[in-house]
Each structure stands twice: as C-alpha cells, then as structure tokens.
Write a protein that binds this DNA or RNA. Sequence first.
DNA 1: AAAGTTCATGGTAACGTTCCCACGAGCTTA
DNA 2: TAAGCTCGTGGGAACGTTACCATGAACTTT
Lengths: 349, 349
Amino acid sequence: MKNGPRQRATIIDVAERAGVSKSTVARVLAGSASISDEARDRVLKAVAATGYERNHLAVGMRSGRSGLLGLVIPDITNPFWAEVARGAQDRAAKDDISLLVFSSDWDAGKEATHLRALRRARVDGAIINPVADNFDDLDRFGLPFVFIGSSAERFPDTLSVGSDIAQAVRLGMDILVERGHPAPALMLGPRSRLARARFLRAVHEHCVARDIDPEILPVEESDYTVEGGRKAMGRLLAGPWRGSRAVFVANDLMALGAMIAVREAGLRCPEDISILGFDGIPAGAFSWPGLTTIEKPGRQIGIRAVECLLDQIAGRPEQGRIFLPCRLVERGSLADVSAAAPARAAAGR
Amino acid sequence: MKNGPRQRATIIDVAERAGVSKSTVARVLAGSASISDEARDRVLKAVAATGYERNHLAVGMRSGRSGLLGLVIPDITNPFWAEVARGAQDRAAKDDISLLVFSSDWDAGKEATHLRALRRARVDGAIINPVADNFDDLDRFGLPFVFIGSSAERFPDTLSVGSDIAQAVRLGMDILVERGHPAPALMLGPRSRLARARFLRAVHEHCVARDIDPEILPVEESDYTVEGGRKAMGRLLAGPWRGSRAVFVANDLMALGAMIAVREAGLRCPEDISILGFDGIPAGAFSWPGLTTIEKPGRQIGIRAVECLLDQIAGRPEQGRIFLPCRLVERGSLADVSAAAPARAAAGR
DNA sequence: AAAGTTCATGGTAACGTTCCCACGAGCTTA
DNA sequence: TAAGCTCGTGGGAACGTTACCATGAACTTT
C-alpha cells in the first residue's frame, strides 16, 4: 500500500500551524535577520511537522530565478563531455541548483531546439559548447551563458572555459624530450578543427625555443577516430622516418588506432614505437600497453564553467577566457631512450 | 553590443497584439478545437511577431505539471549510465520534457539529497537507480517513479526497467557452445551484487537444459574492476583446467583485466584463451584483440524508462517489471575451436 | 416560435511564492 | 515629552499561466 502523493504543504499551512503570517515564514526560510527567536523556532517546528518544501516553480515565477542551469554538450555519451557534465553537476548542486542536460550531436538544428527548451524552462543561464558557427541563435538566446570547449574559439569576445592546449603541448614535448625523443612525429586531426591550428602553433613555438627546425618533424593527419589513427600510422611507418621513433598524437582515439597499426606492422609499442596521446579518455587505461597521454581537465572545466556563469548571473566581474591546465598521465606507451635512461632505471630499482 | 535580455513577451502581450483575450491565446497554444480560423491566424502571427515563448514555470505552477523529469543514476561518467541518460534525454525531448540529471555515487545520503532537490523542483516524476536498501526515502518521495538497473531487484513490487540477464547469459552460453566451448570457466562479481545470483542461476538453467553438470565449470570471483579481473584470471590459470579454454566474464572491466593477465602469462587471446565479456563498454572495442561481449541495452533502458514513467504519470496501465534483451557484440576475443570451424572458415572466404 | 444545443469567446479566480508597504511597540534623541 | 528610529510582524499585490464559468450568437430540435 503506497502513500499516495498526498497534498503538499504550502507556506500558508506552515504559517497557520506556527500561528504567524506567511511573510514571517518566508523571512525565516530566507534567513532574514529581523525575526524573533520564538517566531523562528515555531516556524522551524511547523516546517518539520508539515514536511514543507519550497515550491521552486512558484519561487522562480515570483523572483525570476528558476534555480535551473542549462548544459548543452555534443554528447553525454562521450567520456570527455560526461566528465564536464559531472563537474558542472557537482558544482551546481553546492548552490542548490539543478542542471538540465542536453546533447546536440554537433547539430546546429538540435542546438537551436535545445536552447529554445532552455528558454522556456526559464533557466537562469546556460553552459554551451557551440556548434552553430554563427551567433544568431545565441544572440537571440538572451540569457547569460558561458561557452566551453575548443569550438568556443570562434567567438573571441565571449566568456569561455576550455583546456590550455598550448600548455598541454609544452607538457607533451617536454616529456618526449626528456625520454630522448626530441623530434617526434606528429599526428594531427582534420584541418577543419580549430584545435588543430592551436596544437600545431604550440609545437612550433616549442621547436623554436629549443632550436629545432619544425619542418623536420614527420606529420600525418586524419580524423579523430580509431580507424583514422590506424591508417595514418600505417602511412607514417611506410614513409621515411629518421631519429627516435615516437609519435605525438593529437587525439586519444587516433592514438589507440595508431597502437593497433604498430602491432599490425609486427612492431611493438613502446619498444619500437613510442606513442603519446592527447585527451585522457578512460579507454586508454585498458589498451596494451596503457596509453600515456595528456589529460584534459574535463571535470574542472565543468566546475569553472558553472562558477563563471554564476558570477555572470550575479553581476560579479567577469573573467573573459579561461584556459585550464592539462595533466600528464603515464601508462607505458612511451619508451625512455635517453642517455640517462639506464642510470635512471638502475637507480630506480 | 549585445541585445540585453529585454523584457520577455507574455501571453497578455500576444493577446493585445492579436486583439483577442488571453483565454483565446491559451486555447490556440493548447491546440484546443473551438477556435475560429481567423482568431487562430491572428494569434499565431502575434506569437511570431512578439517572439513569445510559454513560461514553463508559470504553466507548471498553474497546471501542476512542470514538464521536468528527474534522473538519478550512480555516475554519469560511467559509460553505461551515460547511455541510459542519453536514451532518456532523447525520448523526453520528443515530448518537450527536460531532464534533471543527478549522480548519486552509490551513496544513499546523496541519493536522498537529490530526491529532495527533485521534489522541490516539482518534477513530474523520476527515474531512479536505487542505492538505499530500504524504501523510506523513496516511499516519502511521493511522486511517480520508475526504477532502473539491477539494484531495482530489491523492490519486487515496483515498476522497473532493466536488462534481461537470463537472456544475455543464454546468448553467451549459446555462442560459446557454437564455438566449441561447451563448458567455459565463469568469472563472477562479488557475492553482494544482486546481478551475480541471476547470472549464476541462468548459467545453471542452461547447463541443465544441455545436460551438463554445472559443477564442472571452473569458477572464480572478484570485484568489478580491471585489477580484480586480472587477479582472478591469474588464479584460474594457476588452477587445474580441463577442456577448451574459454572464460565467460560477468563484467567487461574484469574481462579486460583477464585479457591482460593472459598476456602476462605469456599466452595469447583468443588462440590460447577465449574471453567473453558482459556489459558492452566502449573500451572493449580498443583492446587487443577487441573484446567480444554481450552488450546491455543502455539507451533502450533509458527510453523505455521514460515511456514507462510517462504512462504512469498519465495514469495509463502500468507494465510492472520490464527486461530488455541484450545483444552479442563480436570483436575477436573468442576463438572457434568447434569441429565445424575449418569448414566454416573455408566457406567464409 | 419557443426551447435547447453548440460554438467562439471573454472574464476572473486560482496556483505558491516574494516583494513592498504599513503599522504598532519599544527605544533613542533633542 | 514629542519626534524620529529600529524591530518584528502582517497584509496585500504581483508574477504568467490555466481552469472554470458566463455570455451571446447561430443553429437545431420539438
């Protein structure tokens, strides 16, 4: 026998039970100062007795604050975006705010639909990974918002939170140098992707700083898929390749594909070919060897995006573009062929 | 220069512009029948001109329907639950319903907090993977809800949607038999998990049907982690093991760990040891060899859960427990050692 | 032709809050 | 002691909808 959804207590029920007016109850609940101890006490008791819970719909209607935020990401099923969602969710929960989550599938039409849904739900603001390449829908959005992800680059004058690709590339190049791979091959994504240019620029800067001619680095490109990485690796292996054999891959899925190609060529990773990925997807932990990679701070991005959005909603000073640092995750796909390696290994044991 | 969030148009603005009463506007928007074509036309034009969008907060307040559903899952970062969320999201969007997503981290306290948040947001109902093992919070929830996942088993008298473990096990045992592994080893999860008993029962039923003594199957157990699977596989390899060497693993992470253990023992998968997983996590596609596994219908579960919930909210007849079928995903970790194998391979080429 | 029915519409009262103004009691200030 | 101030409180008026009842016109039935 279930307890049917019996009539919910309203603020008036609480007021009557406590013998005060609804104004007083509202003040107690809002934590307002001018309340006698006695009144507060009676209200609190009445709240407990009636099981009263504030109706957020009514609150939102009257105050204009729904206590809802929107999150529009390409696909919640993608582990990176799931991390972002999780971070946003946790941060929002701290302020008693709930998140409406939508997946756009990189489709501008779906994006527009979702933005409309958010407006109707009267969210207080939204965190968006923009897919539309013009600003029309977003301009029309008419609500506070923060962009996330690298596609936000298209809109330079907008608040955004993303990962620091330049720092990530530096991190990767540094570890490669340290392990004796001063001139790794590069495996890039498609030219259409914005992140590609940033990646390449950071590599060049690193090379210039270290007095390496960027032109000597073998370069291949493909799409951000396992199959793309497999094929690109095949091409790299078929071509001329001097120096230590290491590849810095701009995407973990591609890196995983590259690893498969290495095995298919009868070579071993990392003994024959070292691979460094970029993303930090969980699947990298389960390959053999585990994929050494640079992890994007997905959760942090979610957290900061919410904070940034709340600041904006509250009218607090805004921070412009925020780039969060990435982290190296070592798992075994990077061989150490530096001069220091044997000594280091000996000292380690 | 941004278009500030200028005053939103209300139903009254639309009514004035169309020269009708707000009742008429409301009727047009609700798709009510008794409307003259002329009035409908003018209202629609006025809606377009003002950019009017229904305020869901106000609608919810008046009608008692917020157009919001809650989804409480253990962790949106877990690929299975992300699939469920995605299915639910897509299905809900079709009915213009938005989803509030929460992660409970298998923590009863967090679960209770989230349920409270859902109640305050006045969601119309909730989809819950229950972690609390008593019904108190849920009983108190006082709203329509549907359980999902195997932990729903604890509450037999409740609407729920999950995967059909018995069917999945049958599928797995059948393919194992077909490939010449009539008596595989079993690798199970911890005794505390409900799914374990169901898994084991289904295996036994299969054995009885095929006249195999279930007792001859080697059995190991561990937790649902890569490391757990690695260790359990180590124990299996160390023990006595007759017959064809195949393992039916009750969880993909464990299966991936088992695969690592096989490699560490200097053996090959699938040539020396065949592995069949259960879950369908994406990482299984990137291991080497790819993990052949039985995929749970995560997205379908999300979809059906929403449908089931909407039915319940609308007072339509409810369906009790729903178990959705799983699917075999072949990727290469299962060798064919049956008598038919050579012929079959020859015919295939 | 009177009475009933349907249709298209308008007016108004909720829904549960918060916000604002008013008011009396007790206090401080001149 | 009169005027002003603060404190604690109560009483409405919104907020934007939908639900319900009322109304008059056109039509159908007896």
